[in-house]
């Protein structure tokens, strides 16, 4: 019973494949939407992009055509946001799965997402709060939830990863019940639908400002993961082996958890809870390329971005009204995941 894995000796080709897929998807996504914009216009806008951005920056909107306005002010930021969020969620998913040595761990295992959701609901309930405050609440609550999980694990004083998972469940369900309380007290005609819609996730509110706020966090986080990707292999062997091989697991694990929690918190705070990306994408890449984080991290980033772009494309074009993004990712992700489980039966971890 020989089971070989491909040892990637031509990573460049694989990178080019994933990057190509990403660019093609991004290009086609710019046609999709309620207004028809032809490929020629898109190309033309791409060519003129620097000049247009400069004029946009100085507030000279009147110089732009309608098509250019749609592309520049709505579609491009939305595409960029999808790319960044998809990348952030799937990379932190890959890191969490490595850290917890469990391929079925998703990035909200430590309660980040539950905290963020509670924070956002709180923000939506507060009188007179605008979208910025909602996001800030969400971000802060997400970090508090993770902090609580980490603090409980620290108090239990066990360095076993399982303890962290358990405290994560405690913290997550605590914040989830807070969130339920908020839902019951919310005004069922105005606030409740807003909360429900926010939870299901959407990129529809994308503006250049949000996207540019998100970019540095995700970018820095990705760079950190990329640099530590070989260490992640060693960490995934478990603490005693990591120590024997020359890695101090506790500090590094905490650091990586904090970084990925930041990434997830900003993602969830800016576009709601988008399920499945962080779980399924690393899993898919692991089936194709093996568990070595050397390839897993960059390829998860690219595939995650592609996946979210496609899901967002479906969300905004499938029905006459926009579908919530979280629903689309689940609809697409769940069957893929089931298929992967089936395909990998009797192999590795399933």
């Amino acid at each position: 019973m020989k089971k070989d894995v491909k040892i990637a000796n031509t990573p460049l080709k694989i990178y080019l494949f994933f990057a190509g897929m990403l660019l093609v998807t991004a290009f086609f996504s710019s046609f999709i939407g309620r207004m028809d914009v032809g490929p020629a216009t898109v190309l033309e806008t791409f060519v003129k992009l620097p000049a247009l951005l400069v004029s946009l920056f100085y507030g000279k909107h009147e110089q732009l055509t309608n098509d250019e306005m749609v592309l520049l002010l709505i579609r491009f930021p939305r595409i960029l946001l999808a790319l960044v969020v998809g990348c952030g969620l799937s990379v932190s998913g890959a890191v969490y799965q490595g850290l917890f040595r469990n391929p079925l761990v998703s990035p909200d295992i430590l309660g980040v997402a539950a905290g963020c959701t509670f924070g956002a609901a709180l923000g939506l309930l507060l009188p007179g709060s605008d979208f910025t405050i909602v996001r800030l609440c969400s971000f802060v609550a997400g970090l508090i939830a993770v902090g609580l999980a980490l603090a409980m694990a620290k108090a239990i004083n066990s360095s076993r990863a399982l303890v962290l998972v358990l405290t994560g469940i405690v913290s997550g369900s605590l914040f989830h019940s807070f969130f339920m309380i908020l839902k019951t007290v919310a005004d069922p005609y105005g606030q409740l639908p807003a909360i429900v819609f926010w939870v299901m996730g959407s990129l529809s509110g994308a503006s250049w400002l949000d996207t540019l706020q998100l970019c540095p966090v995700i970018f820095i986080g990705y760079i950190i993961f990329h640099l530590f990707r070989f260490r992640l292999n060693v960490l995934s062997l478990g603490d005693p082996q990591a120590k024997a091989l020359g890695v101090n697991p506790n500090g590094l694990r905490l650091f990586l958890i904090v970084v990925s929690s930041f990434m997830i918190a900003v993602c969830v705070a800016s576009c709601g809870q988008i399920a499945w990306v962080g779980l399924v994408i690393p899993h898919i890449v692991r089936t194709i390329l093996g568990p070595n984080h050397r390839m897993l991290i960059p390829c998860s980033a690219m595939l995650g971005a592609t996946f979210l772009l496609i899901a967002d494309g479906i969300a905004r074009s499938a029905l006459s009204s926009e579908l919530p993004l979280g629903v689309v990712t689940s609809l697409v992700g769940a069957p893929i995941f089931a298929w992967l489980l089936y395909k990998n039966r009797n192999r590795g971890w399933t």
Binding site: V5, I7, R101, P103, S236, N292, R347, W349
Partner: peptide
């Protein structure tokens, strides 16, 4: 452990 290749 994750299904690493022996060389890895």
């Amino acid at each position: 452990m994750f299904p690493f290749a022996a060389l890895d």
